[in-house]
């Protein structure tokens, strides 16, 4: 369980309280500047709140040893910058840094992460030669290589085409089924509606709604937060937002 209690960061987040369960996919949504990325970073232990706490399985994140936190929470920032022209395999290997495991174990974890993101044919390619979508998958594979209990990713789907978006979300859902907690910042409300178990709606740093997607993303809240008159069409799991 990843819990935020009264999380406050001046000008960014105000008194946000939520409980995220392992084995589920949570989507954090909200308009630009709502505090989504700040909240994700705070949940990852990267933003110390001025008041409030984040706890992981009952233990405050601030009290966890850095390496231990790094092994348990994998975090993918929004700007997928990589300073050097690494190969995909080398990049993914960086995910093993928090572990003090043998080279063979590391290589195996890297291999599996590469396979999970269907990157085998590209494993030895340099990052500079990849397309935006391939790069996004490689960056996510880096997080998978850590084998974390929690995956916190800031807009991992933004650079992907529809097919790869679906493939990735299926992959993340499968990880959740195996017990990993998945928390995603997303802009696409339909994606959140159809694939998340739990949705958190933020606006101006405040928590507006949270719960199952049908409730948190109800037409009422969409109108309130995005100022849009919109209707959900279609059946559960295949719904689309019509303006």
């Amino acid at each position: 369980m990843l819990e935020a209690l009264g999380l406050t960061i001046p000008h960014r987040l105000h008194e946000v309280t939520t409980q995220l369960r392992a084995g589920t996919v949570t989507a954090i949504v909200g308009p630009n500047g709502a505090g989504k990325s700040t909240m994700l970073a705070a949940l990852a232990g990267l933003h110390a709140p001025t008041t409030g706490t984040v706890t992981l399985d009952g233990q405050p994140l601030a009290q966890l040893v850095r390496q231990e936190r790094a092994r348990r929470i994998g975090y993918l920032p929004q700007a997928g910058e990589v300073a050097w022209n690494l190969s995909v395999r080398t990049l993914v290997g960086l995910g093993r840094l928090p572990h003090r495991t043998s080279a063979a174990e590391n290589a195996e974890a890297v291999k599996q992460a590469i396979a999970a993101m269907q990157l085998e044919p590209l494993a030895e390619r340099a990052l500079a030669t990849l397309s935006g979508g391939e790069r996004a998958r490689a960056l996510l594979a880096r997080v998978l290589a850590t084998e974390p209990h929690w995956i916190l990713a800031d807009e991992p789907l933004a650079a992907l085409d529809l097919a790869h978006q679906q493939a990735l979300i299926r992959r993340l859902r499968a990880l959740a089924q195996e017990g990993t907690g998945v928390v995603l910042v997303v802009h696409d409300l339909a994606l959140a509606m159809n694939h998340a178990d739990h949705v958190i709606v933020l606006d101006s740093g405040k928590l507006i709604a949270q719960g199952p997607p049908q409730e948190a993303l109800s037409e009422h809240f969409v109108a309130q937060v995005w100022n849009l008159k919109a209707r959900w069409l279609g059946e559960t799991g295949h719904r689309a937002l019509a303006l």
Partner: peptide
């Protein structure tokens, strides 16, 4: 050295990998 490697991913990702 390991922290320098992590830093290739940017400061936020490096911190998430345990770099102080």
């Amino acid at each position: 050295a390991p922290a320098l490697d992590a830093l290739a991913l940017g400061e936020a990702a490096a911190r998430s990998l345990g770099v102080e």
